[in-house]
Write a protein that binds this DNA or RNA. Structure first.
Length: 121
RNA sequence: CAAGUACGCCUGACGGUCGCGGGUAUGGCUCGAAAGGGCCUAUCUGAGGAAAGUCCGGGCUCCAUAGGGUAAGGAUGCCGGCUAACGGCCGGUGGAGGCGACUCCAAGGAAAGUGCAACAGAAAAUUACCGCAGUCUCGUAUGAGGUUGUAAGGGUGAAAAGGCGAGGUAAGAGCUCACCGCCGCUAUGGUAACACAGCGGGCAGUGUAAACCCCAUCCGGAGCAACACCGCAGAAGAAACACAUAGGUUUACCCGACCGUUUCAAAGGUGGCUCAAGCUGCAUGGCAACAUGUACGCGUAGAUAGAUGACCGUCCACGACAGAACCCGGCUUACGGCGUGCUUGCGUA
RNA sequence: UGCGGAAUUGUGUAAAGGUAGCACGAAUGACUCUGACUCAUUUUGUCUGGGUUCGAAUCCUAGUUCCGCAG
C-alpha cells in the first residue's frame, strides 16, 4: 500500500528541509516524517509535455518504487521531481515534441541509483 | 497500376505473473454498546474518435421570477424539410472551381438614409482634359480664339455611365434595329427558392452592408469550484453605513415586483455522479436527414491531488494524434491505417 | 476544470480601411587630443493560416502562444 503526499505544505517542507539527489531524469527529495511508513509524491511540470506524457512518467515512477518498497528504509517523505531533458528542439515548426519520454528501465535504474545515493536502500 | 474523389470501419491482437480505481458478496478476519467502519478473499468491470479546443445548441441546478414597454447589445440570414435545440444535418435553387467523379459559398436589402472610394485621372457619380463636328470673329494661311452640339476614340484607375455589329448623322449618341445582358408584366412548371417562354420598356441608382445601417427571426443571468444536506460552531456573530419619496437587485431606462446594504474572521464529510433526447439489429414510411414500431439484444468508467502500468512469450503493418472530471447533440482542430463505390490517365488481353 | 483578456522592431508603446510611426537601445559618421553630451544617417516589426475588400495592423473566421480570476 503506497501512501501519497497530498498537501502542498508537505511538498514545500520536503523541498526546504530535506536532502536531495539529482540524476539525469529525476531529482529525489527525502525527509524524515513521524510515521512508520513512507509517503511519496511525484511532480511533473507542465513543460514536460501533455497529460499523456506526464501520466506516463508518473506511472513508471510509481511502478518502480512499488517494486523496491519492501527493501526501502521506512519513515520518510519522498518527492520525485521529473526533469525536462529535452533534445533542445531547434525545430520551430510543428508542435514541439522535444521532450524525451524515458523508458521503464531508465527510470528504474535512476530510482535505484538515487535511492542508494541517499542511503535509503 | 497510378493519381484523385466520396462514403464507411478500426484505433495493436492473444496468453501468463505482479500492481491500481469502482461495483457486488448469505464469504473470512477484525474494531465498536450500536449504527457502521477497516483489512483480506472471490467475482465482474475500468478512457476517445477526437476524451482536445471550449466555438455553438440543449438538459440539470441556483439566482430578489426571467411580467410588460422602450432603447441598446449579440447572433443568424437563398428555398423546403429534419431535430429537444442549434450558427448543425439532409434535399433542392443560384453562383464559383475542376477534363471528370465531385467539392466549395455569412447567398436578404445599395430605389429608407448616412459615410467611404487613398494615389492616379477631366471626372469616382449628373463629369468634359485632349478630342470630333457645325457656326462666328481675326488672319495670307492647313492657324488662333469664342460659342453651340456630342460622348465614338485617347490616356488614369480595382472600378468610367450596358456589350457587340449594322443603320443613321454635320459629328455623334439605344437615336433606330438584330443578338446577348438588364428591368417590368403575363403565362406555364415547381410547396418554394427559381427555371423557361412570350410581350413590353429603351438602359436608369459604379462599388462597398465580414462600413454605419434597414428588414426578418431568435436570445434573462450564471455555471457542478452550480447547488443541496450533515457536522463543526462564533451565523440569532462583530464592525461600519443607512433609517426611507433614501439605497440596492432585475445587463440600460420607465412601470411593476422584491430586498436593509457592505466588510471582517472560518476547517471537514456526503450527495449531485451517471440509464442517457442512449446504442445495435430488424420491419415500415421517406430520395435523404430522420421518424415510428419491435427485440430473452447491449446498456460494462465514475476517480476526487485524481485510478489503466511493469515484465515474459507469440504474431503483424512494429503501433499516429492523444487521457474522462456533471451529462448529451453538433462544429472545429490534430492524426495512423484498412475497405468499398465512382472518376481520369496509362498498360495488357 | 470553468470563466475572461492580450499579442505591432531587442524593450516600452501609437496608429478609428489608403506610404506602419515615436521614445529608449544597436550600428556608422561628424564634433573632441580621448570619452560623454549633441547632431546626422541607417538597421530591424503588425503571432500564424484562410476569407471579405480595389486595398487589411485594423473587419470576419480557424488556430498558436502568453497572462489573469475562481478551491
Amino acid at each position: 500500500m503506497i501512501v501519497s503526499l497530498k498537501q502542498n505544505k508537505d511538498f514545500q517542507r520536503t523541498y526546504k528541509k530535506g536532502s536531495y539527489k539529482a540524476g539525469r531524469f529525476l531529482v529525489v527529495y527525502a525527509r524524515e516524517n513521524r510515521h512508520p511508513y513512507n509517503r511519496i509524491g511525484i511532480t511533473t511540470g507542465k513543460r514536460f509535455g501533455n497529460s499523456v506524457q506526464r501520466n506516463r512518467v508518473k506511472r513508471l515512477i510509481r511502478e518502480s518504487y512499488r517494486l523496491i518498497d519492501a527493501e526501502y528504509k521506512q519513515g520518510y517523505d519522498l518527492v520525485f521531481m521529473v526533469r525536462t531533458v529535452g533534445k533542445a528542439a531547434p525545430q520551430p515548426k510543428r508542435k514541439m515534441k522535444a521532450v524525451y519520454v524515458p523508458t521503464f528501465s531508465e527510470i528504474d535504474y535512476e530510482v535505484r541509483k538515487l535511492s542508494k545515493g541517499l542511503k535509503l536502500l
